[in-house]
Simulated assay, not measured.
Amino acid sequence: MNTPKPRALILIALGLLMLGGFIFLMLRSGPLAPVRVTTATVVSAVLENSVFGVGVVEAERSYAIGPTIASRVQRVLVDVGDSVKAGQLLAEMDPVDLDERVAASQAAIARARHAVDVARAQLRDAEVRQDLAARNARRYASLGEQAFFSDAAVESKQQESQSALAVSSAARAQLEAARLDLERLGAERAAVEKLRANVRLHAPVAGVVTARDAEPGTTLVAGQSVLRMVDPTSVRIRTRIDQGRAGAIRNGQEALVVLRSRPGTPVPGKVARIEFNSDAVTEERIVQVGFDHLPGDFSLGELAEVTIATTRSEGVLAVPNAALHRQGDASGVWRVEDGTIRFVPVQLGETALDGRVVVLAGLREGERIVVHSERELRAEDSIKVVESLDGKQR
């Protein structure tokens, strides 16, 4: 009987060892190995849903303050960042000849008043003459009927009465013309005084100066601004919200605003207005969010992150969004059952910003579901629950 040679025995042993190692690798990390997964327990929780958007700090009421006529800046009394009161003098323009024009209009009005007095006196004289002429005409007419005066004398007195009446009418018209001229000069003086007042630029409301566009000595055209200011009570964040999530937003809902200049300090606010116009290109809706208390160091045009609290649901079942999968037309989760898994279709509700999704039907409280897996799962797969996919076992 032939005995195996030592070399053959060594080769057989090495082959068996390699076969065993291969089988071990197949069962440990190969296709036959259990799939490592992380799991979560379905629990009843309070879900505070919210929407997120990025906005820009703007002011609804801003004011450009400048002259109404071409003029030169004489002095500017405030600077950027100053808080001003309503009616406060902010700047003054060079009046040029406006003071002289005001004085000239006042003199013209005084002269027109004298003209009115003269016309009034002339009217009184004409009315007295008319009354006398009328009485004489009536007396001559009465005596003419008694043949004391000739017809020519009577007609002469009647002509004098008519002439006096015409003079009285002319004096009355002259008085009215003098009054109208006085009104015209008064309107012209008011216009000049308004022009003179407009060279003194006052704050229309209480606010904050945001820009100083001109310095003393600068010549400006009508409508060009010297200063710009905003009403702090009208500061809003013009926020863009995805149209798919904007349906739950209502006026008055609470919001948290994080300014780019203050990343670690959320500022409370509320939804002030939901715009009717949306952006069809970006598929976003515009929402105006106001501050509860305006920060002292805000800046217009600054970007801000806005989170709006929309709904609060208590006692709902929620699962992580990462646990959801789709098979065919059904959305569902992989439920853990005694070391195996089964795909369970579920009916979903709203999604929160923290990644949780409300489950309306398909799961019960206390069941365990797969959240993450190292590869795509199949119904026949066996699983191995770990704390994380880096290999630590639970």
Rank of each mutant, 00 (worst) to 15 (best):
T3M: 06
T3Q: 05
P6I: 10
I12C: 13
I12D: 07
L17A: 15
L17N: 10
I23G: 05
L25E: 07
P34H: 01
V35H: 07
R36C: 00
T41N: 00
V46M: 00
L47N: 08
S50P: 00
S50T: 03
S50Y: 01
V51Y: 04
V51F: 04
G53M: 08
V57S: 04
V57M: 07
R61I: 13
A64S: 14
I65T: 05
T68P: 01
V73E: 05
S83A: 09
M93G: 09
M93A: 06
D99M: 05
D99S: 08
E100A: 15
A104R: 05
A107V: 01
A108M: 06
I109S: 06
A110K: 12
A115P: 02
V118E: 12
R124M: 15
D125Q: 15
D131P: 02
R135C: 00
N136R: 15
R138E: 14
R138M: 10
A141H: 13
S142I: 03
A147G: 10
F148Q: 14
Q158S: 06
A166Y: 14
S169W: 12
Q174C: 01
L175P: 00
E183L: 12
R189L: 15
A191I: 09
R196W: 12
V199D: 05
V205F: 11
D213E: 06
D213S: 04
A214W: 07
A214N: 13
E215Y: 13
L220P: 02
V226P: 07
L227C: 07
V230H: 06
S234P: 02
S234E: 04
R236Q: 03
T239L: 11
T239Y: 03
A248T: 14
L256N: 13
R260F: 04
V267K: 07
V271D: 08
F276Q: 14
N277M: 09
S278M: 02
V281E: 09
V287T: 05
G290R: 11
D292S: 12
F298Q: 05
G301W: 05
A304T: 01
E305W: 02
V306L: 09
A309H: 10
S313D: 12
S313E: 12
A323T: 02
R326F: 08
D329H: 14
G332S: 07
D338Y: 11
I341W: 03
F343G: 13
V344Y: 06
V346S: 05
L363A: 04
E374I: 00
L377S: 02
S382V: 05
D390G: 11
D390W: 05
Q393P: 03
